[in-house]
Amino acid sequence: MARNSKDVRLDAPKGMRAPVLVPRRRQSSDRFGRFTEWIARAMGTPWFLLGLTAFCIAWLGYNTVAPENMRFDSAALGFTALTLILSLQASYAAPLILLAQNRQDDRDRVQIEQDRQRSERNLADTEYLAREVVALRLALKDMASRDFIRQELRSLLEELEEQRDGATTDGESADRSRA
């Protein structure tokens, strides 16, 4: 049986299978989102401001200095076309910047949630390690220390020496009584 490219493969890793419930439109919205972020980043640069300023100066200069029949935007009418172009640019810039900010907010929310989960795991790990350290300390209290073992060995040696001394003195007194 030939497989269709739209068939869902559950035996393949997630990245390699066809999406089950995600519509294809999501990829284009993501592309649009990346485009809005690119526009928002570009509008926030000094180069954009310099380019827009140069464009306006060139527009005003040409429509002021050029011969009357070559001008396309009259200074007498207040440069209406330039005003409309700048208004149109501003009317599109604001929503694009808001879309980019919303995407950034979504990413920040995800990052905050991941940080919270990581902090919870770290706290749980720290608490576990603290309990283990306490358990080891309690277990070590019951263990004999080096000083305790040395003291016990010294006392055993003293007892052995006393027994040896007692045995030699008892042996000497027995030898004396035999003689």
Rank of each mutant, 00 (worst) to 15 (best):
R9G: 07
R121P: 03
D115R: 07
F79N: 01
A94R: 02
F32L: 12
I149A: 08
F48T: 03
M143T: 04
S5A: 13
S177I: 12
I85Q: 03
R107G: 04
K141E: 14
D7M: 07
E68W: 07
D142G: 10
M1H: 13
E158M: 06
L49D: 15
S5Y: 06
A139G: 05
A40E: 01
S155L: 09
E159Q: 14
A66T: 02
E132T: 08
L123W: 06
F79I: 00
R137S: 03
N122L: 15
M1T: 15
R107E: 12
I57R: 02
L60Y: 04
R17I: 02
V65T: 10
Y62A: 04
L49F: 12
L82N: 00
L49C: 14
L99Y: 00
Q151C: 04
A12E: 10
L98C: 05
R109Y: 08
D7H: 09
N63Y: 07
L84R: 01
L99S: 04
L138K: 04
A42M: 03
T126D: 08
V20T: 14
I112C: 09
F148W: 10
T168K: 10
Y62K: 02
V8M: 05
A130G: 04
T126G: 09
A12C: 11
T36K: 00
Q104F: 10
A139N: 09
L21R: 11
Q101G: 08
S5Q: 05
N122A: 15
R25N: 04
G171W: 09
W47H: 11
R121Q: 11
A2D: 11
S119L: 14
E120C: 05
E37K: 07
P23R: 03
A2K: 08
A93T: 01
K6N: 05
R121I: 01
A2P: 14
S155H: 07
L99P: 04
R131Y: 07
R150D: 15
P95L: 01
Q151I: 06
A58F: 05
R164N: 07
T83H: 00
Q163G: 13
T126Y: 13
G78A: 07
N63P: 04
L10Q: 07
E113L: 11
S29V: 15
A90C: 01
Q111V: 13
E120K: 05
R137P: 00
Y128T: 15
F35V: 00
V22Q: 15
W47L: 15
T126N: 09
E37P: 07
A100D: 05
N69V: 14
A76N: 06
A130F: 10
T168F: 15
D105W: 03
P13C: 01
S177Y: 11
A144W: 09
L138E: 15
R26Y: 11
S28G: 08
L99K: 00
A179R: 09
R34I: 02
A54Y: 02
L77S: 05
A94L: 08
Q111L: 15
A144M: 08
E158P: 10
L157H: 12
R103N: 06
E159L: 14
L157M: 11
L96H: 02
S173F: 13
A75V: 06
T64E: 01
D108N: 15
Q101D: 10
N102I: 13
F148C: 09
D175L: 14
T80P: 08
A42Y: 02
L138F: 11
R3L: 13
Q27K: 13
Y62I: 11
A179M: 06
S28R: 12
D73K: 00
